[in-house]
Design a protein around this nucleic acid. Structure first.
Length: 774
DNA sequence: GATTAGGCTTAG
């Protein structure tokens, strides 16, 4: 057998049991046992007279809690043949070794060296040595004796080092933290990717211009504003125009944080898994403190905007209108009142898309923004209700052309000019961002309540007796709602009959009962979704996956290569079947370790997945390393299994890409394998009824928000499954008559799709979430 | 499989 270099004893085959050095005696049954100890002495390789090499070493066991002082914990170890040579080459004093397949002999030197009565003899044919080098164990001359699996978790080691921006060297790849001092909205390059251009700085004062590339727009770092903090892993420094600049390198990943002191330290990232510990939190807080001194809060609102200035505005879109091919009008508010005389743009009411009631209601608080040229495309996709940040908005004093506003009087107009200089652009902010949370508070407190009452009265006059009776029934729930609307509209709820008679696309608030929902087995509501081809599919069941592993069992198990360490063993269930485990990046830190498994059943892979963090099931086909059929997970991380799209993936000769040292996150692993990663999503159908009509609405794009859970969590976490079950049982109690069902509030959108020729209308639930108390 | 970009106000 041979010497294997490991990064932790989690990699020792689970079939082996530890035997402590004190318990060894010449009668010891040593099959399936291993001894673990630290090399405290290593002699030179010597050639025996029969031409074989031999090496003597001494290993010592770290005293464990039950050991008595008198017990011998060090023992002589003799290795022979090629193993002796390997021991000499690969193992150093201070390394921790685990050895199995050994033989015990009586030690002839026990009286002299006072070590163990026995000695361990390792022969090439039978013995295997696993080495955890001192550099990994973090221990030079002692090793834990706590069993086989807690080793690494008990010894957290720094995962990453961060280089100050003034210490970056051209050509090197490094990890950095920085504060964003400039950024442009991401754009499509002339190449294959999207690009985010930004500049960061840190306490060293050095500024680094960075170009971040990714073929997926949504995978680029999410920067909301100047002052945001970024953490970049594996950014490459390059000289450009004799200045250092940063660029994405292989395995690049990013986290982004709000840069303001006091806001939650909550990373934004497209990575599903990332490491973020106390040390990171400390760095972010420190950078925030520093940034606060050099970049004081310069947030400008409509109340504080200076004429003839450029500024960034966080606001909510209430309505929009296309003025021309190169110009769109946006009506927005931020809850503050602009003290200046404002320019009014005359638009045909029929051309306005948005909530007309809200526009009427809030007119003093609304400003109009003209958006030009390249921004028109973005503006057209915006929907009233969205929260926006508009960058480099120009507050311009100008003479008005309308009759009411005489030309000798100047009015303030807001323009988003064409081009992207100074980061000019529009970004839709997600609801959970702290900027939007703050904006919502401002909007709520600014919403004039008397106007609300007027609006309610106005609506009430027009509503039918049915709705009045609904409201009477609703009252107990209004104080204690089971669902909460997260959008900001001031309109009263509409009836489902009106919703059904409306022309799509539109958004409505409704109050209705959940009569039934599908699928009734809740775990089936988690599906796999391909963001590329938009297909939704069921998660393959264990039987299907099991049979794919079974098929691959018949293939020959191979083989060694220089970039991984192979461990072969015979299956305990099928005599003669070999299972191969190839460890990649054993010399790197634990998160870079990748385990390739070949010739194992699903059950065996599941067992391995309790020991090894990232497993890729592989097979060898036509001498190339490749994945199993893509109905099987391509990456197994504990209970979290990642799947690829059969239609959109183009699996490469994967052996060429797996040896790189990277953190094996589903996203970047999929990328190097040529796999189009499927996302876990919720998809449900709710049958809603308010007495005036009934309709089926899907819960899809906003489903995570609705449940405040991630689909992948529901897949792997029993508590989450129970929580979801309870939520549904509260919203739609089983066995109840319609009259007994609770009233619920929903925001639903109506739409048609281009695919269906009959233009039938679909309903989808948006901006609604279950109340926190559920 | 490399390449993409590499900031620095519209002119309505």
């Amino acid at each position: 057998m041979s010497v294997h270099i490991l990064t932790g004893d989690a990699q020792i085959p689970s079939t082996l049991q530890r035997i402590y050095i004190k318990d060894l005696n010449h009668d010891s049954q040593c099959t399936d046992k291993y001894v673990k100890g630290t090399v405290i002495m290593k002699h030179n390789l010597i050639a025996l007279t029969r031409g074989e090499d031999m090496l003597k070493a001494v290993i010592e066991e770290h005293a464990h809690q039950h050991a008595k002082l008198s017990e011998t914990t060090s023992i002589n170890v003799f290795s022979f043949g090629k193993l002796a040579k390997d021991f000499s080459d690969k193992i150093n004093q201070g390394d921790t070794i685990v050895t199995t397949g050994f033989r015990l002999g009586m030690s002839p030197t026990v009286n002299k060296d006072k070590r163990h009565l026995c000695q361990i003899e390792l022969e090439e044919r039978r013995a295997t040595i696993y080495v955890c080098p001192a550099a990994f164990s973090g221990q030079s001359s002692s090793v834990d004796s706590s069993g086989t699996s807690e080793h690494s978790s008990n010894n957290p080691k720094p995962k990453y080092t961060y280089v100050p921006l003034n210490e970056l060297k051209p050509g090197e790849v490094a990890n950095v933290y920085g504060i964003v001092t400039f950024f442009k909205q991401p754009f499509q390059t002339k190449g294959t990717d999207y690009c985010l251009v930004l500049t960061i700085t840190d306490e060293s004062g050095v500024k680094l211009g960075c170009s971040i590339f990714n073929e997926k727009l949504e995978a680029l770092p999410q920067i909301y504003k100047i002052g945001d903090i970024v953490r970049f892993h594996r950014i490459k420094s390059l000289l450009f125009n004799s200045k250092l600049s940063g660029m994405t390198s292989l395995g690049f990943s990013a986290l982004t944080f709000d840069g303001r002191v006091g806001t939650p330290v909550c990373p934004r990232t497209s990575s599903k898994t990332y490491h973020f510990g106390e040390e990171d939190r400390r760095i972010v807080e420190k950078l925030r403190q520093w940034a606060a001194t050099i970049y004081p809060n310069l947030e400008i609102s409509l109340a504080t905007v200076q004429p003839k200035s450029f500024f960034d505005l966080t606001c909510q879109l209430l309505a929009k209108a296309e003025i021309s091919r190169a110009c769109v009008l946006l009506k927005v508010w931020d809850g503050t009142k602009c003290p200046h005389r404002l320019l009014k743009i005359l638009v045909e009411p029929s051309a306005i898309e948005g909530n007309m009631a809200a526009i009427q209601d809030l007119q003093d608080l609304i400003v109009e923004i003209l958006v030009y040229d390249n921004h028109v495309e973005v503006a057209k996709k915006l929907k009233p209700g969205m929260y926006l940040r508009i960058y480099n908005l120009h507050a311009k004093l100008q003479a008005s052309g309308t009759k009411e506003q005489t030309s000798n009087e100047c009015h303030l107009g807001f323009h988003l000019h064409g081009g992207t200089s100074y980061g000019r652009g529009i970004k839709v902010l997600p609801e959970d961002s702290s900027d939007v949370q703050e904006l919502k508070k401002a909007l709520e407190s600014a919403n004039p309540e008397d106007t609300m009452d007027d609006l309610t009265l106005l609506n009430a006059c027009c509503t039918s007796a049915i709705e009045n009776s609904l409201n009477a029934e609703l009252s107990p729930y209004q104080e204690d709602p089971l669902t909460v609307l997260t959008c900001h509209h001031t309109v009263k709820s509409d009836l489902l009959s009106n919703v059904k008679n409306s022309t799509p696309p539109q958004k409505f608030h409704i109050k209705a009962k959940l009569k039934s929902y599908q699928p009734d087995k809740l775990y089936q509501s988690v599906k796999l979704y391909c963001p590329k081809c938009k297909r939704v599919q069921e998660i393959p069941d264990d039987e299907t996956i099991g049979s794919l592993f079974q098929e691959a069992l018949n293939l020959p198990v191979l083989s060694s290569d220089s970039w991984y360490e192979t461990f072969l063993w015979e299956s305990s269930t099928d005599v003669g079947r070999k299972v191969a485990v190839h460890f990649v990046n054993v010399l790197g830190s634990e998160e870079h370790l990748l385990t390739l498994v070949q010739g194992a059943t699903l059950e065996e892979v599941c067992r391995l997945s309790t020991k090894f963090e990232s497993i890729i099931p592989i097979k060898f086909s036509e001498d190339q390393m490749t994945l199993l059929d893509l109905s099987a997970p391509f990456l197994i991380q504990g209970k979290k299994w990642s799947y690829g799209c059969k239609h959109c993936s183009c699996v490469k000769n994967i052996g060429l890409y797996l040896e790189q040292e990277m953190v094996w996150e589903p996203e970047n692993t999929a990328e190097v394998l040529g796999v189009e990663l499927l996302q876990y999503v919720f998809l449900m159908k709710f049958e809603l009824d308010d007495g005036t009509a009934s309709l089926d609405a899907i819960l899809w794009e906003d489903a995570e928000k609705f449940f405040q859970m991630l689909p992948v969590e529901v897949m792997v976490n029993r508590a989450m499954q129970e929580k979801m079950q309870m939520t549904m049982a509260t919203l739609c109690p089983p066995g109840k008559h319609f009259d007994e069902l609770p009233w619920l509030e929903f925001c639903i959108g109506t739409y048609t799709t281009d695919e269906n020729e009959d233009r039938s209308v679909y309903y989808q639930i948006f901006d609604t979430m279950v109340a926190e108390k559920l």
